[in-house]
């Protein structure tokens, strides 16, 4: 079951693809691929939202939600929003080879993202708190709350790693006005993570009748 014989093999081990896409063509495909990936992930988050609306309900009262502290949730949401704005600044800066703004903005994106992540893990999840607000074992509330925030947190962590890598490569001078696909990809991904939270925040904290979880 051979693929290629004879013709062009065994020269210097280097084969050249006559139909190889140019860098610009590859970027166009990359962009479409990344958007398709985002679209694919929509189904993941839709499934979690479906679980939320399916389980957090009462036959009579309709939609329910666990009673959680509103203040910190709003603050973390705003922090993520600010990080999104800095990401946009960083992307515009790299498109204009304005490395100083790029550097500062991306660092701020990272810091803001980290604050969001730590806020979710240590405050909302209550790791490190003596009396957590909610536990994974608290019926469907705990299960779906940790599933939604946990799945989002995994994406935040991936995004933070992505931001860190792009920050380093940007400072090594790998991006130019013509080719800053790495930054653009990072920006699309990071905004996507923010986009998911735009739907998760009201779904978890605002929609439905608040129910107090006993024992916390």
């Amino acid at each position: 079951m051979a693929v290629a014989h004879g013709h062009d093999d065994h020269h210097h081990g280097e084969l050249h693809n006559p139909m190889e896409p140019t860098r610009q063509e590859q970027i166009v495909m990359n962009r479409f691929g990344l958007w398709l990936f985002c679209f694919s992930e929509v189904f993941l988050f839709m499934a979690l939202l479906a679980a939320r609306f399916y389980l957090w309900r009462d036959p009579v009262q309709g939609a329910l939600r666990p009673e959680l502290e509103q203040g910190p949730a709003l603050i973390f949401t705003c922090v993520l929003l600010v990080s999104s704005w800095f990401m946009n600044r960083a992307e515009v800066a790299s498109a204009n080879e304005d490395m100083k703004t790029f550097n500062q903005s991306l660092a701020m994106t990272f810091v803001m993202g980290l604050i969001f992540l730590l806020g979710v893990i240590f405050y909302e999840w209550g790791l490190g708190l003596a009396h957590p607000h909610i536990l994974p074992t608290d019926g469907a509330f705990g299960a779906v709350f940790f599933a939604m925030t946990g799945m989002h947190a995994i994406h935040v962590i991936t995004g933070l790693i992505f931001v860190a890598i792009v920050w380093r490569n940007g400072n090594l001078g790998h991006y130019s006005r013509e080719d800053h696909w790495g930054v653009e990809a990072c920006a699309i991904y990071w905004h996507y993570v923010d986009l998911v939270w735009i739907f998760f925040y009201p779904a978890i904290y605002l929609i439905g009748i608040g129910v107090h979880i006993p024992g916390h």
Binding site: A47, A50, A51, Y54, L55, W56, R57, D58, L64, P66, P136, T137, D138, G139, A140, F141, G142, A143, V144, F146, A147, V211, H212, I213, P214, G215
Partner: peptide
Amino acid sequence: GMNFFTPVISPELLAAGVPAGDPILFQHI
């Protein structure tokens, strides 16, 4: 121990109105 699918929870949570899991959810997803 996250309860997505078992329609039973502790009496304490039940009394407070915390919903339980539902196996039908799994079948839908």
